[in-house]
Design a protein around this nucleic acid. Structure first.
Length: 511
RNA sequence: CGGGGCGUGGCUCAGCUUGGCUAGAGCGCUGCGUUCGGGACGCAGAGGUCGUAGGUUCAAAUCCUAUCGCCCCGACCA
C-alpha cells in the first residue's frame, strides 16, 4: 500500500476508536467471518471444551426464529415432535454397516458412570458394560423404537421430528459451520411404500427451500447428492445448496431416502393391507445451526451482520437524540410512544436509551448486530412530526418519515429489505454461475483460491471421475440439480473424461 | 489427525532474542462533570496465579519438557 507517512499511525487510532474491528472480506474472508460473529455477539469458542461453541443470546435468538419457521411447517405437514435419548448403545450403531463406518471416526463415547473422590482427587468410578455413543444422529435409536411401535399399515405413516443437539468429533472446527456439538432438528418418518417415502423426502426438501428462500432470503439449488456425498446408510440424499460470497457452496439442509436399510437393520416391519409383512420405508431430514453461518456468509458486509427482517431478533432500534434534559424528556417520551405503536404491529423494537453514549456509537453497534432498521428521533423530528429511518443494507439513504404513517412505512421498509436481500443474493449467484465445457476452462475457474463459483458441467456419472476432479481442483459435485431447478436437462460429454453424460451437475468448492 | 502460527487485565498487543526493578500501553470498564443528528472529552479509579503442569536457576512472562486451547492450510465431515 502506498500510504503517506503517518497514516498508519492515524488509522491505528481510528481502529481503536472503532472499538470493534471487522476485517474486510476482500482482505481476509475467514477472519471477516469470525469478526462478524464476535462483533454481533453471536457465539464464541467454548475453549474449555474442545471444538464446542457457546451460542450467545443474540445468536440463539436467530436460531429460535429459524426454529419457529421450520417447526410451524413441520406441524403443518403432519409431523409431531418427540425426544429420544442422547446416548445410544454402541451395538445399535453397528447394525447398519454403511451407517456405522460413516460415523465411526466422529463418535464421542461414554465409557464410565459415576465419579469418586480419591485423596481429594476426582476419579472415574465404574466402567460401563456396554459403552454409549453420544448421538451423532438418531436413525439407529429411533429405528429401535419404530420397531416397537409399528405393527400395521394403520400405524403408518409415522411422522416424527426432534429438536436437539448432536455431537461429531470434528478435527477442524469453525463457529456455526463445523463444531463438535451443534444444534439441529432431525425428522424421522416411516412409510408403507417407497413411493410414499419419496414423496415425504421431496415434501420436506421443499419446506427447506421455502424457508431458505422466503425466510432467510437465500436462494438455493435443490438436488440429489452423488453416491460419494450420500448420507451413510441412505439410498439417496437430497439437498439444498447455497452460494456464499466467497464463491463456495454450503449445504443448507438434507433430506434422505433411507429405503428399507434401517427397517432391515432394526427389524421395523408392518403388515400391509394384503396381510403380508414387509419392512417400512424410512426417511430422515435435517437442518442445523450451520444455517446461521449461511446467513452470515450470504448477506453480511464489512460493517458486520446483516439479517433479513424475518429472522432478525430485533427489527427496529430507536436511537433518541437530545442535548438538554428537557429535550431528553420529550424525545424519550416520543421514542417510547413510537416503540409501542410498532410493537402493536408485531415488531420487536429496542429503544436505545443508554446514557453517556453518542448516537453515532449506537448506530454502529446496531449495524454490526444486524438490526434491519434504525429509527432516529431528535428535537428536529419532534418539531416536524417526523422521524429519520435507515435500513441496515441495500439502501444507503436515510429517509424522513412522517410520524403519522410510521407503522405503514416501517412495514414497507422491512418488506423491501427482505426482498432486496434475496434479490441481491440471487443476482450474486447468477453473476457467479457459469457453464463450462472444457477441462482447461474448468481448472481455470477453480484456480483462484479466494473466489470460486458455481459451475455447471457434464459428468460421466462415476465416482472415479468425481474424485479425480476433486483431486485436481478441490471442487466437488454439490448436487445433481432436480429437473425443476431452471437447468436445461441435456446430454453431453463429461468435462473431464469426455464420456457420455446425461446432464450437467453442479460443481463448487464447499464448506 | 499431519504441517504452520499464536496463548500476557474484558479486547488488541508491547515486554521474551540476551532471565533480575513494583509486568506496561491503547481501547473497554466504574464514579463524577461537561457532551450528544455517524464511533466525545476531562479528572479520579478498579482490574493480570503472564494458558496449565513440571523442570533448570540465587532468581522465570522470558530458558527446557510435557500438556490444553484457539487460528490458518491439508485430509475428513452438516
Amino acid at each position: 500500500m502506498d500510504e503517506p507517512a503517518g497514516s498508519t499511525q492515524r488509522s491505528r487510532v481510528e481502529v481503536h476508536m472503532a472499538e470493534v474491528v471487522i476485517a474486510t472480506r476482500a482482505k481476509d474472508y475467514a477472519q471477516w467471518y469470525q469478526d462478524v460473529i464476535a462483533a454481533a455477539e453471536l457465539a464464541e469458542a467454548a475453549g474449555v471444551v474442545r471444538g464446542c461453541m457457546v451460542v450467545r443470546p443474540h445468536g440463539w435468538a436467530i436460531w429460535e426464529k429459524i426454529q419457529a419457521e421450520l417447526d410451524r411447517r413441520f406441524k403443518e405437514t403432519g409431523h409431531q415432535n418427540a425426544a429420544f435419548p442422547m446416548l445410544i448403545p454402541l451395538s445399535f450403531l453397528q447394525k447398519e454397516a454403511q451407517h456405522a463406518t460413516g460415523f465411526a471416526m466422529e463418535c464421542a463415547v461414554v465409557t464410565h458412570a459415576g465419579l469418586r473422590a480419591v485423596d481429594g482427587k476426582i476419579e472415574l468410578k465404574s466402567e460401563l458394560e456396554e459403552p454409549y455413543v453420544v448421538r451423532p444422529t438418531s436413525e439407529t435409536i429411533i429405528g429401535h423404537f419404530f420397531a416397537k411401535w409399528i405393527d400395521s399399515y394403520r400405524d403408518l405413516p409415522l411422522l416424527l421430528n426432534q429438536w436437539c443437539s448432536v455431537m461429531r468429533w470434528e478435527l477442524r472446527t469453525r463457529l456455526f459451520l463445523r463444531t463438535a456439538e451443534f444444534w439441529w432438528q432431525e425428522g424421522h418418518t416411516a412409510h408403507a411404500s417407497h413411493e410414499d417415502a419419496l414423496e415425504e423426502v421431496l415434501r420436506m426438501l421443499e419446506v427447506y427451500r421455502d424457508v431458505y428462500e422466503n425466510v432467510l432470503a437465500i436462494p438455493v439449488i435443490k438436488g440429489i447428492k452423488t453416491a460419494n456425498e450420500r448420507f451413510a446408510g441412505a439410498l439417496e440424499t437430497y439437498c439444498v445448496e447455497a452460494l456464499m460470497q466467497d464463491g463456495k457452496s454450503l449445504q443448507g439442509a438434507t433430506s434422505h431416502d433411507l429405503g428399507q436399510n434401517f427397517g432391515r437393520a432394526f427389524n421395523v416391519t408392518f403388515q400391509n393391507k394384503e396381510g403380508v409383512r414387509d419392512f417400512v420405508w424410512q426417511t430422515s431430514w435435517g437442518c442445523t445451526t450451520r444455517t446461521i453461518g449461511a446467513l452470515i456468509m450470504v448477506h453480511s458486509d464489512d460493517n458486520g451482520l446483516v439479517l433479513p427482517p424475518k429472522v432478525a431478533p430485533i427489527h427496529v432500534a430507536i436511537v433518541p437524540i437530545y442535548r438538554k434534559d428537557e429535550e431528553k424528556e420529550r424525545v424519550l417520551e416520543v421514542a417510547h410512544r413510537i416503540a409501542r405503536e410498532l410493537r402493536e404491529d408485531g415488531l420487536v423494537v429496542k429503544v436505545d436509551d443508554r446514557e453517556g453514549m453518542k448516537p453515532g456509537a449506537k448506530y454502529y453497534e446496531w449495524e454490526r448486530k444486524g438490526v434491519p432498521l434504525r429509527v432516529e428521533v431528535g428535537p428536529r423530528d419532534i418539531e416536524a412530526n417526523t422521524v429519520v429511518a435507515k435500513l441496515r443494507a441495500c439502501d444507503d439513504q436515510k429517509k424522513t418519515i412522517p410520524m403519522a404513517s410510521l407503522g405503514v412505512e416501517v412495514g414497507k421498509l422491512l418488506d423491501f429489505l427482505q426482498k432486496a436481500l434475496y434479490d441481491r443474493a440471487l443476482a450474486f449467484r447468477t453473476a457467479n454461475t457459469v457453464h463450462v465445457d472444457s477441462w482447461s476452462d474448468f481448472v481455470d475457474v477453480f484456480k483462484d483460491e479466494r473466489n470460486s463459483k458455481f459451475v455447471y458441467a457434464h459428468w460421466d456419472g462415476t465416482t472415479e471421475t468425481e474424485l479425480a476432479i476433486k483431486e485436481a481442483t478441490k471442487a466437488t459435485i454439490r448436487c445433481i440439480p432436480l429437473p425443476d431447478q431452471g437447468l436445461t436437462v441435456e446430454p453431453g460429454k463429461c468435462v473431464k473424461t469426455g464420456n457420455p453424460s446425461a446432464q450437467r451437475v453442479l460443481f463448487a468448492k464447499n464448506y
